[in-house]
Design a protein around this nucleic acid. Structure first.
Lengths: 214, 214
DNA sequence: TAGATTGTTAATCGATTAACAATC
DNA sequence: TAGATTGTTAATCGATTAACAATC
């Protein structure tokens, strides 16, 4: 898989996609060279942290900084954006449908190959360019696609059930939109997308800032 | 706003919603008392960390652990789930529509009060229970609702433009679904929901684990 | 009482920040 | 060359982990 992912601190690793987005933007604006100090200014970080983070990714040149082309290239390689990874979505409701042709997945190398739903009314049709299969075909479809990534967009009550099916079918990593803690075997990776929690992050950050003003 | 949010370490703060989800689940299963050790086992954390995190929230009783009712109560108070906070969504496309009646917002005290779009075909109608206003009414509507939270679900190219409008209208915190770095004035909080980045987290975690196995 | 579980104080670990020499 | 920016080594800071006394 991806190159020397290891050895890079986890917090740095999680900041890299943000840098990648940022450099792509700057490149679009016609910027071809950029210094850590400038990045830091725009991203509201310290120059030292940016420098240290980016040192993990590729070399820069004293005096001129980094080439946007080079750093974008290096980031995409390091993050594995160039490798195409097959994804299935379980739950073809509104959220699932919205994710079926979400551009951001493609840009990171993820291809939504199929969707599944247990509502016959939503099955055996193509929605937003993805074919929706009935749940009973999930195992065989995942295996024939060689999909390793699953996205869960079913109601909370069904999330664990769906999760078990995905794992049994060979899925290795799951993006979970149900605000439920999933139990998975050792070796399976889960990332929770709890949007309620994200909103709470906002309100609590506001609250903390208000307090520290006093 | 929320109680003594301050003084709680940021990493702990960000784990609290996960605990809340977990305790609600356990309560539904009929569990009324729970020890840090059990929580740790289920959440794949260490008992010490759970104990320390939860000590910030409410008191437990030696020998019996914590009451699920009490801790749920304390967490909801601390996180401010009980206060109703008005939210607007900009971009009534598929993703925006899916979020309009997303249950998880309500459970955390966020009420989606209105949506906006610049496509006349999507305006002046009710979608998933929310009225969609034309963009030109955004300022007045936000002010009359007293909304402080905004969700951006417009195409990347329009995200910064929309962000500026939201800030001008008095929005204090933004959940941003565009994979773009938004520039905001001091004091405004932004949380990026970059789903491509989340998928990359999954693939890179898998890669790191595979490497460390060797 | 004995034992499980807590809260708290101290030790460890790792990330961030600072300092500075290297280099285009 | 001089100066800006880099990479690296050392210092600081804060979170996690460990140890243990307190308590139901």
């Amino acid at each position: 898989m991806a190159n020397e992912t290891k050895g890079i601190p986890q917090p740095t690793m999680e900041r890299l996609p943000m840098y990648l987005n940022y450099f792509k933007q700057r490149k679009n604006e016609g910027c071809s060279q950029i210094s850590s100090a400038d990045v830091a200014l725009d991203l509201r970080m310290t120059a030292i942290q940016v420098r240290k983070d980016l040192a993990c990714v590729c070399e820069g040149r004293p005096r001129t900084g980094r080439s946007t082309d080079e750093i974008i290239d290096a980031l995409e390689m390091l993050l594995g954006c160039r490798e195409i990874k097959q994804v299935v979505i379980v739950g073809a409701g509104r959220l699932g449908q919205a994710l079926m042709d979400y551009e951001g997945f493609g840009r990171s190398g993820f291809h939504v190959a199929a969707a599944f739903d247990n509502d016959p009314a939503r099955c055996n049709v193509t929605i937003n360019g993805r074919y929706v299969y009935p749940m009973r075909e999930i195992g065989s479809t995942i295996r024939s696609l060689n999909a390793e990534y699953g996205i869960i967009t079913v109601p909370d009550t069904q999330a664990q059930y769906v999760c078990d099916i995905l794992v049994a079918a060979g899925i290795k990593a799951i993006l979970n939109f149900a605000p439920i803690h999933l139990i998975v075997p050792e070796g399976i990776v889960v990332k929770d997308m709890d949007m309620g929690a994200s909103m709470l992050y906002l309100s609590n950050t506001l609250a903390v800032r208000a307090q520290s003003k006093r």
